[in-house]
């Protein structure tokens, strides 16, 4: 067993904090400890990856932050308020494992869904749709329907949708999990570029060690049964990261530490 992670001091620019967070699902096979005593602070502008095997609670943690699951114990704050208040203030954009675009709307129409719900004016909607589509390099596809696009393009459109209303926090739950390696590399690069230009705080769930190391400023390693944090790694990589950085000793060193953390959690 590893030493328990000491709860980190709250800094002035903490965006997401969790203290002694617990979540137990009651199932027919008895209680399942999805999250046990999770303590974590995510600061403004951080790119935080959550990595671990299935059932380690990484997705559950993100869903608690998004107020899609209710914790059974402990405290979570988002922008200093409860997840529910943060959700109602539209503090975050959420990207799911699948793009989940509405097939009866065009790509532009899909991005307008949150904007319409949030009551932006028509002119503002059109403006924002154009802007976020440029951001994810889909400006030629505004009038296309989702089923006319490839999986990678659909996922980019769903990222554009999450960006459209300018939330400071972006929560991404294995957004590239279903895509092939080449598309994934490309989207990782684009995501870093986007993070650089927008300065958003990003929470990113992944299965992939290289992806976590390449993208993150902070890597949270988790382990299952009960779901808990086994290691938090502060990346020493610079913020500017070309794809080749993955061949540097520094990168390999961090990846090694992540792998060690995962192995420990399994033992």
């Amino acid at each position: 067993m590893t030493d328990p992670i000491p709860s980190q001091p709250e800094t002035a620019d903490a965006v997401i904090t969790a203290s002694d967070l617990n979540l137990t699902f009651q199932t027919n096979d008895g209680p399942v400890h999805a999250l046990k005593d999770v303590n974590l602070t995510i600061n403004k502008g951080d790119f935080v990856s959550f990595i671990g095997p299935s059932g380690c609670g990484k997705t559950t943690f993100l869903r608690v932050v998004a107020d899609l699951e209710q914790p059974t114990g402990g405290q979570v704050t988002v922008n200093g308020v409860s997840p529910e208040e943060a959700r109602k203030a539209r503090a975050y954009g959420y990207v799911f494992q699948a793009a989940g675009l509405l097939p009866w709307r065009t790509i532009g129409g899909n991005i307008r869904v949150p904007l319409e719900i949030m009551g932006y004016s028509k002119a503002e909607q059109a403006d924002r749709v154009r802007r976020v589509l440029e951001l994810v390099h889909l400006d030629q596809f505004e009038k296309k329907f989702p089923w006319q696009l490839s999986g990678g393009m659909q996922q980019r459109a769903s990222i554009a949708r999450a960006l459209s209303f300018d939330a400071d926090i972006l929560l991404m739950d294995e957004p590239f999990g279903a895509l092939d390696e080449i598309v994934r590399d490309h989207l990782n690069e684009q995501l870093l570029e986007l993070w650089g230009t927008t300065g958003k705080t990003i929470g990113f769930v992944t299965h992939s060690i290289p992806e976590a190391v390449y993208l993150s400023t902070k890597i949270v390693v988790m382990s299952p049964r009960p779901g808990r944090i086994t290691d938090v790694i502060e990346s020493t990589l610079p913020r500017e990261r070309p794809l080749e950085i993955r061949d540097t000793p520094e990168f390999i060193e961090i990846a090694h530490r992540v792998r060690e953390g995962l192995r420990e959690g399994h033992a």
């Binding site: 989940g100 509405l102 869904v113 719900i117």
Partner: peptide, 29 residues
């Protein structure tokens, strides 16, 4: 509708009617 799409509407803090008109009725067509 899929659970994921309903979750998505929830993250937008959409009301019952907004979810109905934008998601559930078209999906029910």
């Amino acid at each position: 509708t899929e659970a994921m799409q309903r979750d998505l509407m929830r993250t937008y803090a959409a009301s019952y009617w907004q979810t109905l008109v934008n998601l559930r009725l078209p999906a029910a067509m």
